[in-house]
């Protein structure tokens, strides 16, 4: 990697100041994407501002209807601490990467990076989460903006994620055999006012909501309601692990499985 400076602030305000003082500075969450990128010399920030020492960005609280997770909370903590309050989310977090990844990688880092094959974006979008930053609150529907792109401004930090807890939910991840990221992942969340279905891993536009499935499931929350519904292969990603048609097919299969598991 290229050389860089490191700062480890202890408050959000200090972190924002550190990022604001240097155009080339970059926030460092758990580093599970950024550190390998640096090792490959594919990025050359002048300064890394580590968010892991900020106490106010750690930890989880649940009030029954909403789970609030500090932006710097590692996946492993989410996996264990929301097991009661939001089991589908706990299962998702507990199946990201391997134990080392889950002990370092953070929910804020994952959402800020918005990898098109990451799991957390599906949970956030399907839950109708609110992404809280140092500056504002952003609805998940307004937050994800295509591959590796979000509504975040330069220097803006995800400080907390608030996820409304659905009545029923399930995440189905079909892993890419090498990376074990989601080749396709589908998160289904049933709320009193309707069903939300978010799909990761599949689209050229990144995580998205499958509107037809949501409409069908909002009237009848059962796998049968999805019978005959398909996703167009156009606009899906294709690579050595799966064609557009295969990804489109998997979305339908996994959505049914998620509904069956949640219902």
């Amino acid at each position: 990697m290229y050389s860089f400076d490191v700062e480890k602030p202890t408050s959000i305000a200090e972190a924002v100041a550190a990022l604001g003082s240097d155009d080339e500075a970059q926030a460092l969450g758990g580093g599970q994407t950024l550190i390998p990128t640096l090792k490959q010399r594919l990025a050359s920030p002048s300064k890394l501002v580590s968010l892991s020492g900020i106490a106010e960005m750690q930890g989880i609280s649940a009030d029954g209807s909403v789970v609030s997770i500090g932006g710097a909370t590692p996946h492993g903590v989410v996996a264990s601490e929301v097991a009661q309050s939001y089991p589908a989310l706990a299962a998702l977090a507990g199946n990201i990467g391997d134990p080392a990844v889950r002990n370092r990688g953070t929910i804020g880092g994952s959402l800020a990076n918005n990898d098109p094959a990451a799991c957390y974006p599906a949970a956030a979008l399907a839950s109708g989460a609110t992404i809280v930053t140092n500056a504002r609150e952003i609805a998940a529907d307004d937050y994800f903006d295509g591959l590796f792109t979000t509504a975040l401004e330069e220097g803006e930090i995800v400080t907390q994620v608030r996820l409304p807890v659905p009545e029923a939910a399930n995440y189905q991840k079909f892993v890419q055999p090498a990376s074990r990221f989601a080749l396709v992942g589908v998160f289904v969340a049933k709320f009193a006012d309707g069903v939300r279905v978010a799909v990761t891993g599949a689209s050229e536009e990144g995580v998205f909501r499958w509107a037809e499935a949501e409409a069908a499931l909002s009237g009848n929350f059962s796998a049968d309601a999805l019978e005959g519904l398909t996703v167009a292969a156009d606009g899906m990603m294709a690579d050595i692990h799966g064609s557009k048609a295969y990804r489109a097919h998997l979305i339908a299969v996994l959505t049914k499985r998620a509904v069956a598991a949640a219902a």
Partner: peptide
Amino acid sequence: LLSASYMDYAM
């Protein structure tokens, strides 16, 4: 080489 790392070469 499209499978040039463990992200794409499945061990």
